[in-house]
Amino acid sequence: MPRYFFNLRYGHGPDKLSVDPEGDELPDLNAVRMHALHSARDLIARSRTDAVRDWFVCSYEIEDEDCRQLLTVPFTDTVPDDGDDGTF
């Protein structure tokens, strides 16, 4: 399985990117996106850190082993859009 690196963007500029040195092996981009959303939800729900005041400004900038940026998953994607299912 290919390995994907989940770089954590937590502000503007190069010093606000936490580069993932280890990565995760996942079957395809759909699995990558699901993993990113799961990880983001867990950070939002349970993690406190001095570096991040607001998890919802964060995103995952996901790269493959050749450092090609494949996908950006904003942490706001963990919240369904208004009206997605029409009910409250």
Binding site: L8, S18, D20, E22, D24, L43, T49, A51
Partner: peptide, 23 residues
């Protein structure tokens, strides 16, 4: 120790450990 291992030990997402290590 690897970040993945620290993530297990602390019960935190690995990316959260990487960020904390950088701090």
């Amino acid at each position: 120790v690897k970040h993945e291992f620290l993530a297990v030990m602390l019960g935190v997402q690995r990316t959260g450990v990487t960020l904390a290590l950088q701090v």
